[in-house]
Design a protein around this nucleic acid. Structure first.
Lengths: 136, 136
DNA sequence: TCCCAATTTGTATCATTGTATCATTGTACG
DNA sequence: CGTACAATGATACAATGATACAAATTGGGA
């Protein structure tokens, strides 16, 4: 069940509502009132409570999602992010580029591709610039 | 008994969960880790393991069922299709190789390497013939 | 062996949740 | 005034979840 968020908006301050919401959540996360894994109210719930449009809440959530403080997932809800995802990055960093490349060639080989084919595929991707992961 | 499928979901990637599951299965089929006749976990088993709703697994299975890669039958279970056409396999493999290469470049990028550096490393390995996997 | 009820398995339908797109409002600036 | 822009709202939509259902299997008991 989502955590309870009670805070007030100041409609006259000139500070955008979505900013006020984002800042308030930031404070609660920083202070530990909100912990990793906690589920935030749905955009509609919080919007109703604050008597605003749920798109405004959605925008506030998006701001925090972009800096990885929370994680929003369509159909699932919004959650405080788990402790820094540095772990995965650390694991990656512990591997050398050589090992990474080796693993790639091995995986390709398991699928029946020759090293040359695997190499050609990397070439192709490098040239089309399709490696930047803009699908994420 | 159903085969064991162990893989991770990325809830933050923006890629729908059902797509992630379908793609992962595609890879395993392409690489031969899953063979014709193999029984996949039931929608509920896999859903429990991945901590998602079984309808999401069902949707992933449906995607693959529609292209005849697997066969789902109410009351019986889900199985890898017998003898998919060579053409289908070829397409699968091409797609999988591209994804594999893309993942490699992305991982390398996260480690701070440019696409060109990653490409060069593959070239080096190809030339020294060090890709045969003696490092395990 | 046969029957039937319980169980297991996937499916259909709808509710829930966040997102994308565009319209509306308000305000600053010329 | 009128334009331009940001903030907010309305609406339609995609992904996921909850629930009830249908089809196949299973296992006793007659």
């Amino acid at each position: 069940m989502p955590v309870k968020l009670d805070f007030q908006l100041d409609f006259r301050s000139g500070v955008p509502i979505y900013t006020q919401i984002a800042e308030e959540l930031r404070r609660k996360i920083a202070s530990g009132q909100l912990k990793p894994g906690d589920q935030l109210p749905t955009v509609r719930e919080l919007a109703t409570e604050l008597r605003i449009n749920f798109n405004t809440v959605s925008r506030a959530y998006r701001v925090l999602d972009e800096v990885r403080l929370i994680s929003t997932q369509t159909g699932r809800g919004t959650y405080i992010s788990e402790a820094p995802t540095e772990e995965a990055i650390l694991q990656l960093k512990q591997k050398s580029l050589r090992e990474l490349a080796q693993t790639y060639l091995e995986d390709a080989a398991r699928m029946g591709f020759s090293a040359q084919e695997a190499r050609a595929e990397v070439d192709r991707l490098c040239e089309t610039g399709n490696h930047t992961g803009e699908n994420a």
